[in-house]
Amino acid sequence: MTHAACQRLKLLAFFAIFALPVAVAWGMVEWRIGIPEERTAHGELQLSLPPLSQWPLTSAKKQGESDWLLAFDCPEACDDNADRWWRLHRALGREADRVSRLRIGGGGEPLPGAAVARWTGEAGWRSPHRLWLLDPEGRPVLGYAPDVATADVLDDLRRLLRMNPEPPMARFDQSSSVVGGGADDE
Results as ranks from 00 to 15, higher is better:
155 D>Q: 14
41 A>F: 15
139 R>A: 14
165 P>H: 07
143 G>D: 01
18 F>C: 11
143 G>T: 00
4 A>P: 01
68 W>P: 00
166 E>N: 07
112 P>T: 07
144 Y>Q: 01
161 L>A: 03
59 S>T: 12
104 I>N: 00
67 D>Y: 02
185 D>M: 14
61 K>R: 14
111 L>H: 07
12 L>A: 14
109 E>P: 09
88 L>E: 06
12 L>K: 05
184 D>V: 13
34 G>H: 04
89 H>E: 11
177 S>T: 14
103 R>H: 08
47 L>F: 05
133 L>Q: 01
25 A>L: 15
43 G>Y: 05
98 R>H: 08
124 G>Q: 10
141 V>I: 12
33 I>K: 08
97 D>I: 08
161 L>S: 04
113 G>W: 12
51 P>E: 04
36 P>Q: 09
170 A>K: 07
46 Q>L: 15
167 P>I: 08
81 N>Q: 15
181 G>M: 05
37 E>S: 13
15 F>A: 14
159 R>D: 09
132 W>D: 05
135 D>H: 03
89 H>A: 06
119 W>T: 06
125 W>K: 09
144 Y>W: 05
56 P>W: 04
65 E>N: 10
161 L>T: 04
143 G>V: 06
14 F>V: 09
147 D>N: 13
58 T>G: 00
144 Y>R: 02
122 E>Q: 11
100 S>I: 10
80 D>G: 10
156 D>A: 03
164 N>F: 10
93 G>S: 04
75 P>K: 02
105 G>C: 11
15 F>L: 15
